[in-house]
Design a protein around this nucleic acid. Structure first.
Length: 418
RNA sequence: GUGGUAUUAGUUCAGUUGGUUAGAGCGCUAGUUUGUGGCACUAGAAAUCAUGGGUUCGAGUCCCAUAUACCACCCCA
């Protein structure tokens, strides 16, 4: 065991990949059905992009980024999330001039230097999407409904949707002042983190996990009660639209999200099966982000789902994902003389798109049968001199043992019609 | 960054108060006679017991350090 996968990374093995394919394909299908198209963005960006979008004071930027200087002296960072790169691409490729809304989904790896635990790794995968140019709450409801459709299609039940509104810069400023007024008398008794949050981002003081702070935070004013009229209308309308779609939700005022770019609507889908993190999927609106990245004033909204956490949830809920049989037939050789014939027949089958296998390691005939059985290949054709001479083979159905006689030149069409 | 628990064949695990050549199930390979898999039986390959030190006549077993995994704090997907 000289080499091992690096801390917080994992091999996804051939025996498990079908689960990933199923989730990826289903997610893509659902997104397509809503008019979203896939975007693929680079794995790394210049460090500054993440500092500006995710936010300089966030934990993600301050202590979790994989940052290094490349050979040209540029500071490079492996993406810790997908939104920043998509926004960069949106602006760089002039997508602001496309018809709104511009909608894109993605399936990416992301990197965060963290201590690993259940549902958290250093390299992980996210299914996500972003939509630009839609101001109203209709699209908020729509992207939430994308997730509910995706969960339905995958057979996932009982996920809990929590929503909140963290307002716009206008109401947040007013609220921050209220919060500061509230915390100021007790600030000296609170933890060091909260003391520094007091000036930089008092919003984060509300969900501090320190016992001393929890007591003070419990009675803190809630942002949701101090939203400006526009933000309040947006949130109220979103709630009505979710109700209209039959999507159940809870309002959780503790959802503030640790990435700076969020505004107004924020939401999470939670579960008890993915560790104490609990969040399978998180997202929200970021109306000021594009503009702050030197773009024009374009509102945006998106979410990201932890693929590992999602698959963990599938497993916990006992969801059976069918493993596809790519190989339909095994051609077993009775002796070495018939192998050239088998090779040619396999080539024909494969050209016709029919998966097949033949012996490649010199197994005896009986061992070939055992192999086909173990590999769960549904059909076997035994090929000997007699079959070639008579121009006929028996196709054996491994599930029930029955055999069907087929002419040699009819093999391809036989499997095409199964 | 800080804790707790763990680390023995490919894999899941045994391994008695420290005592000879470290075991098993599954998996893998081959066989149980002549052209048909699953079941059963037989045999075989496969482990410097995570790594490095230490205690001891003797360490898989005790002690220390490191690494990794799992779980938790913080934070996020």
């Amino acid at each position: 065991m000289r080499y091992a996968a690096q801390k917080g990374t994992k091999d996804i093995l051939p025996q498990d990949i079908y689960r990933w394919h199923k989730a990826e394909q289903t997610f893509a299908e659902v997104c397509h059905s809503y008019g979203y198209e896939e975007i693929r963005i680079p794995t790394f960006e210049q460090t500054d992009l993440f500092q500006r979008s995710v936010g300089d004071t966030t934990d993600v930027v301050q202590k979790e980024m994989y940052t290094f200087d490349d050979k040209g002296g540029r500071s490079i960072t492996l993406r810790p999330e997908g939104t920043a790169g998509v926004v960069r691409s949106f602006i760089e490729n002039g997508m602001t001039s496309l018809a709104s809304p511009v909608r894109m989904f993605y399936n990416i790896t992301a990197f965060r230097y963290e201590n690993v635990q259940k549902g958290r790794m250093r390299e992980f995968h996210q299914f996500g999407l972003e939509a630009f140019g839609a101001q109203g709450p209709e699209i908020d409801a729509e992207i939430i409904s994308i997730l509910t459709v995706f969960f339905d299609r995958m057979g996932i039940k009982n996920t809990k949707l929590c929503i909140n509104s963290i307002g716009c810069p206008t109401c947040r400023k007013a609220y921050n002042d209220k919060l500061k007024d509230y915390f100021r008398p007790n600030l000296e008794k609170m933890c060091d983190d909260c003391k520094s949050r007091f000036d930089k981002n008092p919003l984060r003081m509300i969900d501090c996990k320190d016992d001393r702070c929890k007591a003070f935070a419990a009675g803190a004013p809630r942002l949701i009660d101090y939203l400006c009229e526009d933000c309040n209308n947006h949130f109220e309308s979103l709630k009505k639209q979710l109700e209209n779609l039959g999507i159940k939700y809870e309002i959780d005022s503790s959802i503030v999200r640790g990435l700076d770019y969020y505004t107004r609507t924020v939401f999470e889908f939670k579960s008890e099966n993915v560790g104490t993190q609990g969040t399978i999927c998180g997202g929200g609106r970021y109306d000021g982000l594009v503009e702050s990245m030197d773009g024009s004033s374009v509102p945006g909204i998106g979410f990201a789902m932890g693929a590992e956490r999602f698959l963990m949830e599938c497993e916990a809920q006992g969801i059976e994902i069918e493993k596809p049989n790519y190989v339909k037939v095994y051609l077993a050789s009775l002796n070495d003389e018939v192998k050239p014939f088998i090779s040619k027949t396999c080539l024909e089958l494969r050209r016709a798109g029919i998966g097949c296998e033949q012996d490649l390691v010199g197994r005896a005939f009986k061992a070939q049968m055992k192999y086909a059985n173990k590999a769960k290949i549904p059909y076997v054709i035994v090929v000997g001199e007699d079959e070639i001479a008579n121009n006929k083979v028996n196709v054996k159905n491994m599930a029930d043992g029955s055999q069907t006689e087929v002419a040699l030149d009819g093999i391809v069409s036989f499997f095409e019609n199964i």
